[in-house]
Design a protein around this nucleic acid. Sequence first.
DNA 1: CCTTAAACGAGACGGTACGTCCGGTCTTTAA
DNA 2: TTAAAGACCGGACGTACCGTCTCGTTTAAGG
Lengths: 195, 195, 195, 195
Amino acid sequence: MAAPPNPLRRNEASRRAILDASLQLCAELGYRRLTIEAIAARAGVSKKTIYRWWPSKGAVVLEAVDDVATTVTEHPNTGDLAADLHTQLTAVIGLLTPAETSAAVGLIAEALHDEELARDLRERIIRPRIDEFKERLRQAQRDGQLPADADLDVALDLIYGPLYHRLVFHLGLPGPDELRTLLAHALRAFGPPPR
Amino acid sequence: MAAPPNPLRRNEASRRAILDASLQLCAELGYRRLTIEAIAARAGVSKKTIYRWWPSKGAVVLEAVDDVATTVTEHPNTGDLAADLHTQLTAVIGLLTPAETSAAVGLIAEALHDEELARDLRERIIRPRIDEFKERLRQAQRDGQLPADADLDVALDLIYGPLYHRLVFHLGLPGPDELRTLLAHALRAFGPPPR
Amino acid sequence: MAAPPNPLRRNEASRRAILDASLQLCAELGYRRLTIEAIAARAGVSKKTIYRWWPSKGAVVLEAVDDVATTVTEHPNTGDLAADLHTQLTAVIGLLTPAETSAAVGLIAEALHDEELARDLRERIIRPRIDEFKERLRQAQRDGQLPADADLDVALDLIYGPLYHRLVFHLGLPGPDELRTLLAHALRAFGPPPR
Amino acid sequence: MAAPPNPLRRNEASRRAILDASLQLCAELGYRRLTIEAIAARAGVSKKTIYRWWPSKGAVVLEAVDDVATTVTEHPNTGDLAADLHTQLTAVIGLLTPAETSAAVGLIAEALHDEELARDLRERIIRPRIDEFKERLRQAQRDGQLPADADLDVALDLIYGPLYHRLVFHLGLPGPDELRTLLAHALRAFGPPPR
DNA sequence: CCTTAAACGAGACGGTACGTCCGGTCTTTAA
DNA sequence: TTAAAGACCGGACGTACCGTCTCGTTTAAGG
């Protein structure tokens, strides 16, 4: 692989213009119709500049999403586990809605065919949030809201799984009440409800 | 939508050749690198013939998958709910593995951007299986293996959700034991196991 | 070559509809944009029926032009050679104008690449008129308006040549006065003007 | 018409390869069977590159012919008008022979339906040669080989006309002797040969 | 402060696939 | 038995983007 370009020389204004253009165009056209050519044109940048810093459309959008997602999805900790999960999942649902023009959904679709992008998506975006999620669950275990022996990986699957199941088949993402019901069931899977 | 051409005139041999070529090529190249041109070439058919009967690559593959999936995923009914679900989910995992060359995974990715394909995928492939799944759960309710008031939509989400959660982030589809664990938890969400 | 179909079975109504549609469409679209498909559609006839009786688009148009050209271009004989030639050439110019939508011009262009069509065009349409033309010149020789030893093939070239020279390079077909001048010069090439 | 791309950036090697391939293929297949795809393939160039610089197959071939025709058809001036015209017309006949694979004949046919190509053909190729031709005739007038009042436009029609008349109806282009006869007649149209 | 190497915009280039059109052949249906 | 309707294979069309590659022009790092 060729040596990567010297990051010191990187033009931050171009980087921002590219990421902004990506999200704008994704919102306007949807991820699928988004093209590198259009990003370059909108950002007032040459295609070469994009390819110098990112290997693919997916990588550009991933970085753009990473920027904006950072603030959106911090796991809250108010002491009430069910309420906090509800808040958190609602934020995630916001990132995935509307599916047609959501950059996040576009990335998920792309990652299904692109091993490398999938790895980046998982490691840079998902994994840190999984870690925060588990940390919050451990807190709940210490608080006695969740059994100490609960399998946190299973919890992750039961709590986040329904979202993606519904997303991929366009079954309609859950509204607030439905979400509450789902969470209640998921938590019940770990034992008798706390006194 | 334009009226489809008269299906009476349709050449069944061409249809089969097209569907077979689609699945072959998908297995060889992966859904993403699959092209209409290649399907036409492999099937010995003109592109026009494909476009006459299907609106997009996704629609072709959907029909191809529909053909083969029919037999693969019938919900068994041995009387043991957890075992039957395990069997069923294992079959579904088979359709989704390996992700890079699975036609089903390709369709799921495509459907994330294509409303119309998503509708077809849901109505022609998924919905009937959801119905069978719920029917099996109702049987379990009659058998006393599941509380009579269990919310079957929630059950669907808790049981199938983990698969898609793991699929979209390449978290590794569950193996047999992991699957058993997931199922046990999901079922526990509906109350204490019947005496 | 396959035996031609039995002309006795030929449907005259279809034949007329095809020829009429050809000329209509040629006038509307120009020869180049004319297609067999469009002729069939306009004539309410299947493509097969056209291919059964004619080998190519050119052959259809040739027959259509032959029908209408018959009456248009009979060599007149009033006794005044120059005047008669003027009349005749004016009729020919009419067939070639406007060039963009003239079926005759389309045939000429097609014949430049299609040996077989060229032969048919020459033998069925052009040759009989050449014969009439020469007959008229022989009459003029008998009348003393043209030297008895004039080379009629050369006369043909000098009299008709300018039309096609101008046609192929879009130099503008001659108007009545210009045509008179051209004819006067062409006839002068055959000797001193008769006393 | 859209502004053409900046010619400064143009790749001269590609341009030459395209023009060469065009003439080669035209000689092999004839103008009619020549396709942009084949030119691109033979020239080792993408179709886009052809469409970037030329609007149509005709325009490509026109430029190719322009290149080669430049040297072929310079009007000679030996002092003997009839002999010089004979030389010149022989060169033109060479460009038009054999008709099936002559690029020039292909252009003429195409120009009959394509106003824009016709204009280019006339202005870039024909007009300069007409000017040279008339210049040669004016020289002949000064030499006393042609009457001073001869109408040079008429001379053009009488001298070149026969070629195109014969070309379009495949009547056989004139050989050397026939050509001499035609020229002699055409010149006689302008009055008694000077003593 | 100046030099000089890089990053940059612009965009041409070889490719691949797109979705469409039409040519010419073959099959089905109805009269 | 004929002809309409039209499906079929083939092949070229002209377009859109891909990712690579010059070009001159900034521009900022380090001498």
